[in-house]
Write a protein that binds this DNA or RNA. Structure first.
Lengths: 150, 150
DNA sequence: TGCTATGTAGGAATCATTCCTGTCTAGTGA
DNA sequence: TCACTAGACAGGAATGATTCCTACATAGCA
């Protein structure tokens, strides 16, 4: 979803995040895509508009935005960290072939609970569901026939 | 659960994994704990019995065992990879304070589905649920009062 | 018992991420 | 409008988990 700079500024203010050109560009890049980019992806995207941008700043900014709750980190296996500008409660569908991550919004999945006898004194704050499978393209490419990867 | 070497040998044979001293030791260490150790943890544990053991062998062996389906990899955030000797379908409860991972076995959680309109041609093979919260110890230490960490 | 494919040890290489340091700037108060 | 200061930025170095490379060792079969 395309965001204008005023909307970005408003969100930053609401979350008490100091506004800079770099941060706005990084956040905009993330909010405009549903593709869960990596820090490196964002760095390359933003560097086109701001050639002085440092990789370091991308990592630092993602850390700040994450702590402020403007951004969410998504992880699959121990692969490179991916980021998500969608911070509403949702879940993910991950292709074992090409690695793409698709958002799943479903109210039913938002209300799972652990049998209290298993919770063992834990105070549960939230949960996340990850579905694994093969996307249509990977099935066509014959990957879907493979056994499930570790 | 303590395993004797015959049981280990049987499992290896069943999964067509070549048996070596190193592999047996690594698998035994993993099967005997419920603590989801890292590769480094396993390396240190096994090195006590086999001082020549190489870190490399631990990684390689974990890869082999994982591909054979004798071992499962568990990941939390983009932290170090953790391993699980329990390969039955189950889910995890993760403490945001100390990072401990507790197994959750619950049949209800094993039968989740995505609304088909959201599956978008995906062929779903499985899913995993991760609960986040604070364990009893971390709550006592006051960590539970903290806002949820990114 | 010997052969061969495969596993192992150890060191070097990789690469995402973090740390360090000097410079710059957003936001505030005068 | 200006100066100040905490916090942000850039760039390079460091870190550390994991993988790659290679020579040697060994499991499993004939």
């Amino acid at each position: 979803m395309k965001l204008d700079s005023q909307e970005i500024e408003a969100r930053f203010r609401r979350h008490a995040v100091r506004m800079t050109r770099q941060r706005a560009a990084i956040y905009a890049a993330l909010a405009e895509t549903t593709s869960h980019p990596t820090a490196e992806d964002l760095y390359r995207t933003v560097k086109r508009q701001q050639p002085m941008m440092s990789r370091n700043t991308v990592y630092y900014t993602l850390g700040v935005l994450r702590q402020a709750g403007l951004v969410q980190e998504v992880n699959v296996g121990h692969e490179v960290a991916r980021f998500d500008g969608n911070v509403t409660v949702h879940h993910h569908l991950i292709c074992l072939g090409c690695g793409q991550i698709v958002d799943v919004m479903d109210d039913g999945l938002n209300h799972l609970a652990i049998p209290s006898r298993q919770a063992g004194g834990f105070h549960v704050l939230g949960h996340r569901v990850e579905f694994h499978g093969y996307c249509a393209d990977c099935q066509q490419a014959g990957l879907g026939a493979m056994e499930r990867r570790g």
